[in-house]
């Protein structure tokens, strides 16, 4: 745990950048392009729920839900979540069908730093929908000695 240090006094916490392994907004855009190709993405129908203040980036509860009747004729086929600053841009990709009845997925993710999160849903008509959220991550105080 040398990465982050507890410094009272200056109230500063040093974050050493992860260097070349870091995802970037460009890497995220590229990962999104791999999923949507040239299709348009409409910012609608998707809700991305994250706590307003993240107390520890190691475990951040997240729920993605999509407005959809979830019928055989009209349902959400896939939900993807991406991030900008973790080492890799992909967080998860899930496949759904009318058998799910409701297009909502909850999980917990790691966020190394404050950043933008994007969720993209693909509906059965081949269209893409999205939502994004800017999250602020607090770094923990009182950490371990180097392990």
């Amino acid at each position: 745990m040398d990465r982050r240090r507890f410094l009272v006094g200056t109230a500063a916490i040093v974050v050493v950048p992860l260097g070349s392994a870091s995802a970037t907004p460009e890497a995220m855009a590229e990962a999104i392009r791999k999923v949507v190709g040239d299709s348009a993405v409409t910012e609608s129908r998707v809700t991305l729920d994250l706590p307003p203040l993240i107390e520890n980036g190691n475990t951040v509860p997240l729920v993605v839900s999509v407005e959809s009747p979830m019928t055989v004729a009209d349902h959400v086929k896939a939900i993807h979540v991406f991030n900008e600053k973790n080492p890799q841009p992909n967080v998860f990709s899930a496949r759904l069908s009318a058998r799910n009845g409701r297009a909502a997925i909850g999980t917990r993710i790691k966020l190394g730093d404050s950043q933008k999160i994007v969720a993209i849903a693909e509906t059965s008509d081949g269209r893409f929908w999205s939502a994004s959220a800017d999250v602020i991550v607090t770094l923990a105080a009182c950490l371990e000695e180097s392990t």
Binding site: F6, C142, L143, E145
Partner: peptide
């Protein structure tokens, strides 16, 4: 408790 001791730079 060790974490707090390390936090204030005390020898745990």
């Amino acid at each position: 408790l060790r974490n707090c001791l390390v936090g204030i730079r005390a020898e745990p």
